[in-house]
Amino acid sequence: MKFRSPITLLFSFASFQACKRSCEDQLVRYPFGSGPECGDPRFQTSVTCDQEKLTLTIHTGTYNIETVDYDNHVVYILDPSMTTCTTFPPSKVIVLDWDSPFTFTEGNFFALLGCSITSSPLYKSRNGDNGTVVPLCDNEGAPLCSLLYSCPAISNQNLPISSCCVYTPVDLGPAFDMDLQKLQCVSYAAVYSFNGQDLKPESWKYGVALKYKFSVKNDFPSACNICERSNGVCGYTGAYNLFICNCAGGVNTTTDCYFSASWNNCVKLLSWKPGFFIT
């Protein structure tokens, strides 16, 4: 059978595994996927749909992804051990792997809480030029600390405001190691948006914003763009992780899903075959 279009399509019927466009109520788009061979293989182990919840697994644990900004390539996670205006748990270390496709965004505000004023390295950093003491805390972050320390969950700890450090560890590289034990701090709060309520910490958006990259140039793959426009889901297959466009019913093509719907009945009839070409 001949198409008018000269495009050659490869249909695969090996598994009929359909990639989902959502994980419960969360949209799932490239580079993330709902299961094996869905999305980009570089993100397969880090972002998964676990029990109908989109999660991120990094060096220090697994975190729920609250939302994804696909236009700006940012995921927002909530660390359950992080302090907010209503909770003050002992925080853990949060570290990104050195080869991670994620980096911390510049829009994050990290407030380290209950830090030792006398022995924390945050207050003992030295300028290499003249040896003067230059704290790693941002002096302009003092108002942020005052507002945070007014929250009941934090004020009940009876910690002096001076033990709060608004910290931007740009000198530790893109995967910075925020080791609270090493920094001698009790907990931390992360804010990625003040939600238009600068003076109301109870209304701020707490969490960590992480930027993700597809590749060195961070270009969105054109083949994936075409696939998604045809209501397909971008995926990969085989030992070399070759691109596939996953269509309704689990049909995989090498281009798009515009023609797959017409062949759904044929696909079901020939599902016993490992694959065939149509030209």
Rank of each mutant, 00 (worst) to 15 (best):
T83L: 07
T83E: 07
T83H: 02
T84L: 05
T84F: 05
T84V: 06
T84A: 06
C85D: 05
C85E: 01
C85N: 01
C85K: 02
T86E: 09
T86I: 08
T86G: 07
T87L: 12
F88N: 15
P89H: 02
P89M: 05
P90K: 12
P90F: 04
P90V: 12
P90C: 10
S91F: 01
S91R: 03
S91L: 05
K92N: 15
K92H: 04
K92V: 12
V93T: 15
I94T: 09
I94W: 02
I94M: 13
I94C: 07
I94D: 00
I94S: 01
V95Q: 12
V95W: 07
L96S: 00
L96G: 02
L96F: 00
D97F: 04
D97N: 12
D97R: 10
D97G: 11
W98E: 15
S100T: 13
P101D: 04
F102R: 02
F102E: 00
F102A: 00
F102S: 00
F102D: 00
F102N: 01
T103M: 02
T103V: 05
T103F: 01
F104I: 12
F104N: 06
T105L: 04
T105C: 05
T105V: 07
T105M: 05
E106C: 10
E106G: 12
G107C: 03
G107I: 14
G107M: 09
N108V: 06
N108M: 06
F109C: 12
F109R: 14
F110Y: 08
F110A: 06
F110N: 08
A111D: 09
L112A: 01
L113Y: 01
L113E: 10
L113M: 10
G114K: 01
G114E: 03
S116I: 08
I117Q: 15
I117P: 04
T118Y: 06
T118N: 13
T118C: 05
T118M: 05
S119Q: 04
S119L: 09
S119W: 00
S120L: 06
P121H: 07
P121C: 08
P121W: 00
L122W: 04
Y123M: 11
Y123S: 03
Y123I: 07
S125I: 03
N127W: 03
N127I: 07
G128S: 13
G128T: 14
D129N: 13
D129W: 07
D129G: 14
D129K: 13
D129I: 13
N130A: 11
N130K: 07
G131V: 04
G131S: 05
G131T: 08
G131A: 10
G131Y: 04
G131I: 07
T132K: 11
T132Y: 10
V133S: 12
P135E: 02
P135C: 03
L136R: 11
L136T: 06
C137P: 04
D138G: 13
D138I: 14
D138E: 10
N139H: 14
E140F: 11
G141M: 11
G141P: 08
A142D: 15
P143S: 08
